[in-house]
Nucleic acid binder design. Structure first.
Length: 265
DNA sequence: ATGTCGCGACCATCGCGA
């Protein structure tokens, strides 16, 4: 089973790229982030015509996540459990989870768009950290199920200096601050495996290049789109890929697809 | 040193988010 993640930076702007990429990569499950549209505006027909079931959790203008699957969904749930620091419900559409059956059992996939958190001196950063704490609690509960579980999406976290072209330039950024990385380690240390790092220690593996300052042309990227695996999924990991070539297409997203193959079919 | 997109409000440019 091939599972992928891609922050498309507006699904309406990127639907042609998505359909092209679905055809060439043939993923079974795709997690999308930054849809930037409400559910009713999601281009469902184009994606269903490509052979996918669609589960959408959208929002006007910002955020928004979706999961596509060739197999039917056994379960769909939206919104990460927990509340804002104020105690109010979180109004931002940043999480969707599905359960899908295979010949060998089930696979659970959680798809997230973690808050960016910049600028860090504003209330955006405490929102990011509290969201990460909610994610840790959720992941701990899911790991107790003992299922093949893939927690993936745009984490807006640069885990280590090996995951950024110029670490010094990112030192004060919410994606790379010590507290951000500490919370990410706490998440992984629950028992999750970073799929990409399970197969490669190579530097220079990036998933995002800023539109500004010629970052793509100079390969000044960062690795912030991750695929974390429960032990039952990690034991079945076969391959991991980053479809870097998609960043060179005309009018691209600033993120590229990341995918993996699990031996669960 | 700077360099970009996408969205929405509102009409052509701007503020916001990234």
């Amino acid at each position: 089973m091939r599972i992928a993640t891609w922050n498309v930076n507006s699904i309406k702007q990127r639907v042609d790229h998505l359909v092209t990429w679905l055809g060439e990569r043939q993923p079974d499950i795709v997690c999308l982030q930054e849809l930037k549209c409400v559910d009713e505006a999601f281009p469902r027909e184009a994606i269903e015509s490509a052979g996918y079931n669609v589960a959408v959790h959208g929002q006007k203008a910002f955020n928004g996540v979706a999961i596509l699957s060739k197999r039917p969904f056994d379960e769909v749930a939206v919104r990460l459990p927990g509340q804002l620091l104020s105690g109010d419900e979180d109004p931002q559409s940043r999480f969707i989870e599905v359960l899908v059956s295979t010949a060998q059992g089930v696979v659970r996939v959680g798809n997230l768009y973690l808050p960016n958190g910049n600028p860090p001196e504003t209330d955006k950063y405490p929102y990011k950290i509290s969201w990460m704490n909610r994610l840790i609690k959720y992941a701990d509960e899911r790991l107790k199920l003992g299922e093949p579980f893939v927690l993936t999406g745009d984490f807006n976290v640069i885990p280590t200096p090996a995951d950024v072209h110029n670490p010094a330039a990112w030192a004060g950024d919410a994606l790379f601050l010590p507290q951000t990385r500490e919370r990410y380690r706490a998440l992984v240390n629950l028992g999750l495996t970073d799929a990409l790092r399970a197969v490669s220690d190579a530097p220079g593996l990036y998933t995002f290049w800023d539109y500004q300052a010629g970052a793509w042309q100079k390969n000044q990227g960062i690795r912030i789109d991750h695929m974390l695996l429960s032990p039952q999924a990690a034991d079945r990991l076969a391959t991991v890929g980053i479809d870097k070539h998609v960043r060179s297409w005309e009018k691209p997203s600033d993120h590229v697809p990341v995918w993996l193959d699990l031996d669960v079919d």
